[in-house]
Simulated assay, not measured.
Amino acid sequence: MTAAMTVPPGQRRVDVCNGDADGLCAVLQWRLQTPAPATLVTGLKREIALLDRVQAMPGDELLVCDLSLQRNRTALLRLLAQGARVRYFDHHAACDVPPHPNLHTHIELGSQTCTSLLMDRHLGGAQRLWALAGAYGDNLTAVADALAADSGVGSEDRARLRMLGEAINYNAYGEDERDVYIPPARLYETLSRYRDPLDLSLHETIVRPLDALRRADLRQAAQVPPHWQNGRASVYLLPDAPWSRRVIGCLANELASARPAMAHAVLKAVRAGGYVVSVRAPLSAAGGARELCLRFGGAGRAGAAGIDDLPARDLDRFIQAFGAARWGESG
């Protein structure tokens, strides 16, 4: 199901997730372990309020993965009032989780977990390879490597899972579906044919073209010098172009991995004025990104957060706050 469609009432099972690697791989684990027909509602990375697109009737079952409960709370309350049963897996901050007998939450914060890993724990590792792909895509490389090694996954297979996860994640970024290689809902259709993601990487042609496009976009981004930097942090300003819309999150992750002791902010100009912002706290002190972005109307997690609409007039104020931020003290 495409992100633009609205789910009609009367669907028995609806899976709702972010269209990045973490969201798609979390849902995929559940559906591989609990096979049943379900309608998928997903979207691009910054399409967060996806529960607004769902209507429910008594007895409907909803699985929600990798979506901020704060951004979806009003719609969640409506769906619960309509009689839906909801399982909610997420790793974003969730203030004031509504108590309800039909709501079962699996929410855990922290810089060393993601929704795919929460699902992996809930399922007892039954679909571990897909959990690893989701974790790699969410830039939890060290965590995924350690879990893969403990699970007996060799270095070559780890590299293939990382390529897959990063490709899925990269594909979620864009202003609309014209920017991305394949809409996330259609990508999920391909992923869901494979119980083993390593088989997918051998038999499908989707991964290498995505990886090649990702690398080409990163080469474009590498030509952009830092707008501002000091010994603790760097800020990059990207123009508004299809490649920059796709690469903003990927570039932030690459910068974080290359310089783990530094914080990084990647800003992309938008046509209407202002910026979209991706912030990464230092990997060595992964906390504080959410608190910083909240000050400018954004949201996110301790180690990775963003701002959907930073006015141009606030650019200097943001850079000043970013340069003065104290990382790793919360989250």
Rank of each mutant, 00 (worst) to 15 (best):
M5L: 13
N18E: 09
G19A: 05
G23V: 00
V27C: 14
R31S: 14
T39D: 01
T39V: 02
L40V: 02
L51N: 03
D52Q: 04
Q55I: 02
A56K: 09
M57W: 11
L63H: 01
T74Y: 03
L77D: 05
L77A: 05
Y88T: 12
F89Q: 07
H92A: 03
V97H: 09
P98T: 01
H106N: 13
H106W: 15
H106E: 15
S111E: 12
S111Y: 12
M119V: 15
L123K: 05
R128A: 12
A131C: 05
V143I: 11
A149E: 12
L164R: 08
G165E: 02
I168C: 09
Y173T: 00
P183F: 00
E189G: 04
L191K: 02
Y194N: 02
D199C: 07
S201G: 08
H203R: 13
V207E: 05
D211H: 13
L213S: 04
D217N: 14
Q220S: 14
P226K: 00
L238C: 00
P239S: 06
D240W: 06
I248H: 00
I248D: 00
R271L: 10
V276S: 14
R280E: 10
L283D: 10
A286V: 08
R290W: 11
L292G: 10
G303Y: 08
G306K: 03
I307M: 06
G323Y: 06
S330I: 14
